[in-house]
């Protein structure tokens, strides 16, 4: 009974704040609605027995990633409104029509295709407790560090590649040529670059 009530709240909050995201004119408001959606989803993960995933969802998604989004929004300026004119005529109604078709497909798959996925049996009867080990974290760790060890190591390589890529992309100053350093070797560049002080 309590699961039905909590799921109802999660359903309303998640769908409502994603729809509000769609209509939010301000990018900061859209980011805050996305945070609300993610917290509601963390609650849904808790309902389904994924305690580890729920904690990670709040820490990484609602915490780290959304703070990064807000940083970039602040960096680019928040007061820019989106123009209402459409460069592509008819794109908006076409997108909404496509979305309606896609929603119908998704609901059909969720209510009909699930019987096929469950082997023709009653899907709700197949709900199993995933936490046979003592605790969800231990269960996830057992699978993650045995069956999925190679993908896990590959993600670490991917994170290093992402860090290096962002550092290459985002550098603006610092990589000055010697000519620029010599030209700017005035009052402050002595502090900024030791090489400039030596040449000037």
């Amino acid at each position: 009974m309590i699961e039905i009530i909590v799921f109802g709240v999660v359903f309303v909050v998640a769908l409502g704040s994603s729809l509000a995201m769609l209509f939010a004119k301000n990018a900061v408001h859209a980011a805050l609605f996305l945070v609300a959606t993610q917290i509601a989803l963390a609650l849904a993960f808790l309902l389904e027995g994924g305690q580890f995933i729920a904690a990670i969802q709040i820490i990484v998604y609602a915490g780290a990633i959304m703070v990064l989004f807000l940083f970039v929004i602040m960096l680019l300026g928040v007061d820019k409104k989106e123009p209402l004119i459409e460069p592509l005529t008819g794109q908006r109604p076409l997108a909404i029509g496509l979305g309606a078709v896609l929603a119908a497909e998704m609901l059909w798959v969720a209510w009909r295709g699930i019987e096929f996925a469950a082997g023709g049996g009653d899907a709700a009867g197949r709900l199993v407790d995933t936490n046979q080990d003592p605790g969800n974290v231990l269960a996830v760790a057992r699978v993650l560090f045995s069956k999925y060890l190679l993908p896990f190591e590959a993600t670490s390589v991917m994170l290093v590649v992402a860090i290096v890529g962002v550092m290459v992309l985002a550098r603006r100053m610092g990589m000055t040529t010697p000519g620029e350093v010599a030209a700017g070797a005035g009052e402050e560049s002595d502090l900024a670059s030791p090489g400039g002080g030596a040449t000037g």
Partner: peptide, 29 residues
């Protein structure tokens, strides 16, 4: 317990909202 169809419907509808939003909004962020 809540049947998985409800969770999958929620996931599908949220995915559709994501698709429509990515199609109609202009701001890259």
């Amino acid at each position: 317990r809540v049947a998985p169809e409800y969770y999958l419907s929620l996931a599908g509808l949220m995915f559709v909202i994501g698709v429509v939003g990515a199609l109609i909004r202009r701001n890259a962020i």
